[in-house]
Design a protein around this nucleic acid. Structure first.
Length: 227
DNA sequence: GCGACAG
DNA sequence: ATCTTGTCGC
């Protein structure tokens, strides 16, 4: 499965950093995050990325799954392994996961129109979660789809699929709590890069069929865990 | 100072 | 994330 990828890496910076340096990078790159719609429509391909770990966490394994849209048929996959070089610290997930994700993305021939990330977008202490970080680096519209809350508060939402409530952090709407499946725990959606919250919610719902998580991340998840 | 805390 | 079987419920 060789072949040149079409990925243009917009930013390059070291991945072995202190927390202080990581904060500086987050604050610097945050200024480049765009939270209005700048998608290439019609959207033809959507990608999901996910991570797994081997050997007691010393090896990071990233998986990418590219699906056609809106029919969600699997088009291409890739897996990449590399030594884990950053610990898990809430608020700094991207520094732990993105290096391997970039390796996997570089093996993909198709160029996704949207990338769905496992984790937050701007619903983050410094408005720069992993979806923002990846989106800015590869310059592709991205959405944060997290399974649990990092920051913010919200009202209760109804049990019906499609219902959502704004996620408020420090007086601002940074995302949404979205019910992707009736009667099931909701997910946390936020803009990553080049997409608005309402459009992000729309695409997440259109990528979610019979399960809580989007098909993109479900497939990437299987690849990342099934060795 | 005391909790909270994506994967 | 990961360690792990059966079990409750639609």
């Amino acid at each position: 499965m060789r072949g040149g990828c079409n990925l243009k890496i917009n930013q390059r910076h070291s991945w072995t950093l202190t927390v202080e340096e990581a904060i500086a990078i987050q604050e610097q790159l945050q200024a480049e995050v765009i939270t209005v719609d700048q998608l290439k429509e019609p959207v033809q391909y959507v990608a999901g990325v996910d991570m797994g770990f081997e050997a007691d966490g010393t090896i990071s394994r990233a998986a990418v799954a590219v699906l056609s849209f809106p029919d969600l048929q699997l088009q291409e996959t890739s897996i990449a392994r590399r030594p884990t070089s950053f610990p898990y610290i809430p608020g700094f997930l991207s520094f732990r996961e993105i290096p391997a994700v970039l390796d996997a993305l570089e093996k993909i021939k198709l160029t996704p129109d949207i990338i769905l990330c496992d984790g937050q977008g701007i619903a983050h202490p410094r408005r720069f979660g992993i979806a923002c970080h990846l989106g800015v680096i590869v310059d592709i519209p991205s959405i944060g789809v997290a399974k649990s809350l990092l920051v913010g508060k919200h009202q209760d939402l109804s049990d019906i699929r499609g219902n959502w409530q704004p996620l408020i952090y420090k007086g601002e709407t940074v995302g949404a709590v979205l019910r992707t499946r009736s009667g099931v725990k909701p997910v946390y959606i936020s803009s990553g890069h080049r997409i608005s919250l309402s459009t992000a919610i729309d695409y997440v719902l259109r990528c979610t069929t019979k399960y809580r998580l989007p098909e993109t991340t479900r497939i990437a998840d299987k690849l990342a865990s099934n060795k």
